[in-house]
Amino acid sequence: NEEPLPEGWEIRYTREGVRYFVDHNTRTTTFKDPRNGKS
C-alpha cells in the first residue's frame, strides 16, 4: 500500500529492471523515491 507519487512524477524501470523516478516538472530523473526519500 504505497502512497501515490507527487504530481508530475512517474515510475519507470531500466532495461535491467532497476526502478527509478521521472520528475516531469523539472525533466529530471532520480533513483531516490520522492515519497519518502529512500532509494
Rank of each mutant, 00 (worst) to 15 (best):
V22Q: 05
T14K: 02
P6N: 03
T30R: 04
Y13D: 01
R15Y: 11
T29A: 13
E3S: 11
N36G: 13
I11D: 02
E3T: 11
T28V: 08
K32T: 13
S39R: 10
R27E: 12
V22N: 02
K38L: 15
F31V: 07
S39H: 14
G17N: 08
T14H: 02
N1W: 13
Y13K: 05
K38V: 15
G17P: 00
N36E: 15
F21M: 00
D23S: 05
E2H: 10
V18T: 10
K32G: 06
R15G: 09
F21K: 00
D33G: 01
H24Y: 09
E10F: 07
Y13W: 12
F21R: 00
F21A: 00
E2L: 10
T14R: 02
P34Q: 01
E16G: 14
P34T: 00
E16H: 14
E7M: 13
E2C: 15
W9F: 05
H24F: 09
H24L: 10
R35V: 03
V22M: 09
V18Q: 11
G8Q: 05
D33E: 02
E3N: 11
P34V: 01
T29Y: 15
T29M: 15
G37T: 12
Y13I: 07
S39I: 14
N25E: 06
R15K: 12
R19F: 06
E10V: 08
D33C: 02
V22R: 06
R12Q: 08
N36Q: 12
R15D: 09
G8A: 04
T28R: 11
P34K: 01
D33F: 02
D23K: 03
R35C: 03
P6H: 03
S39P: 15
N1H: 13
T26Q: 06
G17Y: 05
P4K: 09
D23R: 03
D23F: 05
N36L: 14
P6E: 04
G17K: 06
T30F: 04
R35Q: 02
T30I: 04
E7I: 11
T14W: 03
Y20I: 07
H24K: 09
P34A: 00
G37Y: 12
T28D: 05
G8M: 04
K38T: 14
R15T: 11
R12H: 07
W9T: 01
